[in-house]
Amino acid sequence: MAEQCPNCQSTRIGKNNYGKKTAGVVGASAGAYGGYIAATAGARAGAALGAVAGPVGATVGGIGGAVIGALLGGATGASAGVILGDVLDDRVLDNYHCLECGYSFSADSGSENDIR
């Protein structure tokens, strides 16, 4: 983390983490949707095979599979999104902000040639 603001040299620095937050939400949504779609296809196959056990077994198995698939997909998508967002925060966005003067900067903006 940058220890000083390049503008006022303050050590009171905060992080925005906009990329991490946004990509995490988008990843969770996409993962949950993808997991639900995959689980629905699996639930159809399970329902067809579960028809031998009766309609109750097919229904419970189908619903349970869809919910579990959506939850696992959402968790996987969220973690992938957070990793991507962390990279965006560190390399693309001005993730740091000075709590004294309000200046926003990235971790590598401490050079003399920084454009303000």
Rank of each mutant, 00 (worst) to 15 (best):
M1T: 12
M1F: 04
A2E: 10
P6T: 00
N7V: 00
C8S: 06
T11R: 13
R12V: 03
G14E: 15
N16K: 10
N17I: 03
Y18G: 04
G19I: 10
G24Y: 01
G27H: 06
A28R: 05
A30M: 09
Y33P: 00
Y33W: 07
Y33H: 06
G34F: 05
G35I: 01
Y36S: 11
Y36P: 01
G42Y: 15
G42H: 05
R44I: 15
A45K: 14
G46R: 10
A47F: 02
A47V: 06
A47S: 11
A48L: 07
A48R: 15
L49T: 13
L49C: 12
A51L: 06
A51I: 15
A53G: 14
A53H: 05
G54L: 12
P55N: 07
G57D: 15
V60D: 03
G61M: 15
G61N: 08
G62M: 10
I63P: 02
G64R: 03
G65M: 11
A66P: 06
A66R: 10
A66H: 03
V67S: 05
V67F: 15
I68N: 14
G69Q: 13
G73P: 08
G73R: 03
G77D: 07
A80V: 09
A80C: 08
D90P: 00
D90S: 14
L93C: 01
N95W: 15
N95S: 09
H97N: 09
H97L: 02
C101S: 04
G102S: 02
G102Q: 01
S106H: 10
S106C: 02
S109Y: 01
S111E: 09
N113M: 01
D114A: 06
I115G: 01
I115W: 05
